[in-house]
């Protein structure tokens, strides 16, 4: 009997914290982030109600049907009920899946707008590097033999290639607000993962692959980028920042970088 009470108290406590948003998402900084939160909230309500009802029912049967001397009901089940709740859960689950698929499609199927700004992302144990094409809009040739982390050339950009002369590399990522960005994700050694909480986005960087990954950030500010795929002993230190700037600030930053070269 005490078990019923324990289950109810735990259920209520859990629901209370979930709906009290004590430890919660940071505010979204993009349209995708808002869509994401809407889908999350829909799922949270549906599962929250199922969770509450299932736990409540469990506690209730434990409480009501404890051995009080009356005989148990001799029944082997009810096919109508089985069919009913099978259909209900199937519809509910598939429905959630379908509403969510729109968000997935926007990230992965729709393709980046043609005017997207391309930024190369290179991960290694345990640091991030980002590369911007210069005014020519082209990335220069790279060669792994030219990689020189101390010399500021983590990509191994070939100086002899004119397209690479104006490339800018940076240890953190800066983007202009409101402009569609297309990341080209590459890894040099093991698998890493690019994760920005505020964007509600995450993608593995797999050595041997170049994975395109679009996003648009609307809200200026500085956000933390955390590696989210185990990459070795420094995994927990693999941090950089995403700085979303106004278009003017961004252009200024790019000019400064170019001047420093």
């Amino acid at each position: 009997m005490a078990l019923a009470a324990v289950i109810w108290v735990l259920t209520i406590a859990i629901c209370y914290v979930f709906f009290g948003h004590y430890w919660w998402f940071p505010p979204p900084i993009s349209q995708h982030g808002q869509d994401y939160d809407a889908q999350f909230n829909a799922t949270l309500w549906v599962t929250g109600i199922i969770f509450f009802l299932a736990q409540f029912a469990l506690g209730w049967v434990i409480f009501t049907y404890r051995d009080r001397g009356r005989p148990a009901r001799y029944t082997h089940g009810n096919n109508m009920l089985e069919a009913l709740w099978t259909t209900a859960t199937a519809l509910l689950f598939i429905g959630l899946m379908l509403t969510g698929s729109r968000i997935w499609a926007a990230v992965h199927f729709d393709g980046p707008p043609p005017d997207s700004m391309r930024i190369e992302v290179l991960s290694k144990q345990f640091a991030w590097s980002f590369r911007y094409a210069g005014p020519d809009g082209k990335f220069g040739r790279t060669d792994i033999k030219l990689i020189n982390d101390q010399g500021g050339n983590p990509f191994g950009i070939d100086d002899k290639d004119p397209a690479g002369k104006d490339d800018i590399t940076s240890a953190s990522i800066k983007v202009p607000a409101g402009k569609p960005i297309l990341l080209i994700l590459k890894s040099r050694d093991v698998i890493h993962n690019f994760f920005v909480r505020e964007l509600r986005l995450k993608q593995d960087l797999v050595p041997g692959m170049e994975i395109p990954f679009p996003f648009t950030a609307d809200q200026t500010g500085t956000y933390e980028v955390a590696c989210s795929e185990l990459c070795g002993l420094g995994h927990h230190q693999m941090r950089t920042t995403l700085e979303v700037m106004t278009e003017a600030d961004f252009n200024k930053w790019k000019l400064e970088q170019a001047a420093q070269k």
């Binding site: 998402f25 994401y36 889908q39 999350f40 799922t43 689950f93 729109r102 968000i103 509600r200 986005l201």
Partner: peptide, 13 residues
């Protein structure tokens, strides 16, 4: 139910 949706896994993975 959260993790099975690729869209929500974009954050929870």
């Amino acid at each position: 139910i959260f993790l099975g949706q690729p869209a929500l896994d974009l954050y929870f993975h």
